[in-house]
Computed example of a mutant assay.
Amino acid sequence: MNYIGYINKAQYFEHTTEIINLMKGHGCVNIHIEETKDKKRIEWCKFIDSLSNGDSAVFASFDNVFHNFNDMMFFIKYCSKMDIRIISLSDELDTHDKLFPERRTADTLNLICKVFSKRDRASHDDLEAELYSYSFEDRKLKRYKLVINMYKAGYSVKEIMERTGYRGKSNIYRILHQYDIEMEYPSMSRTANKVREKSI
């Protein structure tokens, strides 16, 4: 059970050393630091890969980590499934209710609203629509999961589009990038049959 930290240095450039020391004080054995604004977020991918069942994920703040509502929800569900504790130092949030016992549920909800109120109005409208339509969110996540599972199973992008209803390859690539799925380049013409033949 390790404490593993993540910092987006581009946002906390002047306070990186202070935050690192704070994370170490909370027991972090490994801290991933995103040096640039690269959309691939290499250190974030390494951070996710380094987390195991029962570990603790330590952030400077939610605003420093998540780009949008979907990213946050996907990570929270992932941590719930893996029994990973989430600690956000600046937000005084601990999913085990040990570090900040005085925090209330209302504080957590206000935190989520505060983080995404900084986005533009269009994003805010999308967030409100998702918050009030859990069935839509569930359907979308299931569709994303189908894309990821089919790709990992060896289906071609064309086959995935036919099965999921997406009309453009860019939609498939966007989902795979969004959830940090390693892709094969330059050829995307894999088939499920090839994968099955290898496994026999």
Rank of each mutant, 00 (worst) to 15 (best):
Y166D: 07
L131F: 13
S117L: 02
E92A: 08
T164M: 09
L109G: 10
H32P: 00
K169V: 05
I160K: 00
G54K: 03
V115S: 07
N171Y: 08
A60M: 01
D126V: 09
A10N: 03
R163E: 15
S90G: 14
K118E: 14
S117C: 05
I84T: 14
K169S: 11
D83C: 13
Y173A: 05
M161D: 11
Y155V: 05
F100K: 01
E197D: 06
R190C: 00
Y185W: 12
D63N: 13
F74P: 01
I148Y: 05
R143P: 00
Y78D: 07
E14A: 15
M150V: 04
H96F: 12
E159W: 02
M150S: 08
M73G: 03
I86L: 14
C113I: 10
D125H: 09
S80N: 15
L109K: 14
A153I: 03
A153E: 13
F136H: 00
Y132A: 00
R167P: 00
C45T: 08
T108I: 15
K158I: 12
D63G: 08
C45F: 01
A57F: 05
F136G: 00
P101M: 03
N171L: 13
D94F: 03
R163Q: 15
F116L: 07
Y166K: 06
E184R: 15
R163L: 06
P101G: 04
S123W: 09
K98L: 12
S156C: 09
K158N: 06
E18R: 11
N193K: 12
N193R: 14
R174D: 13
L89D: 06
G54R: 00
V157H: 01
S88P: 03
G25C: 06
D94E: 02
D180N: 10
L131Y: 15
S117R: 03
F59C: 10
K37D: 08
S90K: 14
S88K: 07
L51F: 03
N21H: 10
K98N: 07
N53E: 06
N70I: 11
A10R: 04
C113M: 14
R167Y: 06
F75T: 11
T191R: 13
Q178G: 07
K9Q: 07
D63Y: 04
Y134K: 13
S123F: 11
G54A: 05
G54C: 01
D97H: 10
M82K: 13
K194S: 09
A60G: 09
E43N: 14
I86R: 11
F74G: 02
D138C: 02
N8E: 05
Y78Q: 07
I87Y: 04
M1E: 14
D38T: 07
E18M: 03
E18G: 05
V58M: 05
K39S: 00
L93Y: 11
Y179M: 11
N193M: 09
K98W: 02
S88R: 02
I84F: 08
